[in-house]
Design a protein around this nucleic acid. Structure first.
Lengths: 189, 189
DNA sequence: CGGAATCTTGAAAGTGTTCAAATCAAGTGG
DNA sequence: CCACTTGATTTGAACACTTTCAAGATTCCG
């Protein structure tokens, strides 16, 4: 059960025989159909979401009414609006499935109990948060370092499997430019 | 001793009478003169840094040889290259004092011992990492949402005290545009 | 006071966007 | 399995935002 999650946890901490069963008690699994939402602007984000299988995107709608993607999440990625989650404020983001997906919800409500019963999980969550922040520092660097055209080539080289899995216009949105410009870049080479 | 740090920790977890003394055992204080570096490109980042007093900047040098600032840290902010710290790889960043500062170093080497002796501190570090990631999600949103001119006005309104503390050209670098353009924006209004 | 650091100016050149329309691809129902 | 509808990608011209470069003005600090 939930092999992707268990494998990911074991990258960071050791689990004894009986701990997975205890852990599963705190998980709320969710089957999400393509295009279905697990979070919508204006709601409270009440869970941390782990992608056991499939692919999600996070986006907000800007002043011009255009959907701006800020994040993708595929297998073994965590995703949530942490600002909303930590401050209990309404989210400005949406999280939607790009493919039929299986998502594991860790509700904030039961988090304290989880950490008390399985302190290792707090270590795991700390490490995952630090790693996510590290990735975000790198992303910030790339953003400043590369032109938009370079961003595209860089992303293509770094995540070729990924580029095939999402529509091009979503990739353009994530990288911060228009589908028209992406088209132009692709034409060149 | 270290009132800024203690106050910050107490925002997240409770500390008993004797815990601060235990904690101080794991801290390596550092006085940093203006313009001195606490991390230089090519080194390993071995500590998490807490700004007890003063102001730091983190930057990298891009292909054109220009210093790109990716982060500031003032009182009660944490700063480090987490990618280098977690993966033990050479850092691409520099961290430098903008003012004479007092920095508290938490060395990675002693982190496990700290968490074992004071498990609360792991909770604190988890919460700080999550909050940092939340802030970084918001920053990503602003980046996509605003034009560069709007970024400047937004930042000015959100952090007026801060804007007075750092040179304008550093702010321009952080916001991702040239000092010349900043000058233009300021002229307008 | 003198020199270095910071900020301003203006013109020319890019880079990336907008808009409207055409083309291409894909999924659905009959 | 075709016809239809919707979704996705491409094109091109005009435009807007931001950078570049080179120089001058200003401020700060020892």
């Amino acid at each position: 059960m939930y092999p992707t999650l268990l494998a990911h946890i074991k990258r960071f901490v050791d689990l004894s025989e009986d701990e997975p069963a205890q852990l599963f008690h705190f998980i709320r699994p969710l089957q999400v159909k393509k295009k279905a939402f697990i979070l919508k602007e204006g709601q409270l984000c009440k869970s941390d979401y782990f992608v056991e299988k499939g692919c999600l995107r996070m986006f907000f709608v800007n002043e011009k009414g255009i959907e701006q993607i800020t994040q993708f999440a595929l297998e073994h990625w965590w995703i949530a609006d942490y600002f909303s989650l930590l401050n209990k404020t309404k989210t400005q983001f949406n999280i939607q499935a790009i493919e039929n997906s299986e998502v594991l919800c860790f509700d904030l409500k039961t988090q304290a109990a989880l950490f008390q019963q399985l302190p290792k999980m707090e270590t795991y969550f700390r490490m995952v948060a630090q790693k996510a922040y590290a990735a975000s520092q790198m992303r910030t660097k790339f953003f400043h370092d590369f032109s938009k055209e370079e961003s595209y080539h860089h992303f293509n080289n770094a995540f070729p499997e990924f580029v095939q899995r999402v529509p091009q216009y979503m990739l353009a949105s994530y990288l911060g430019f228009t589908p028209e410009y992406l088209s132009e870049i692709r034409k060149k080479k």
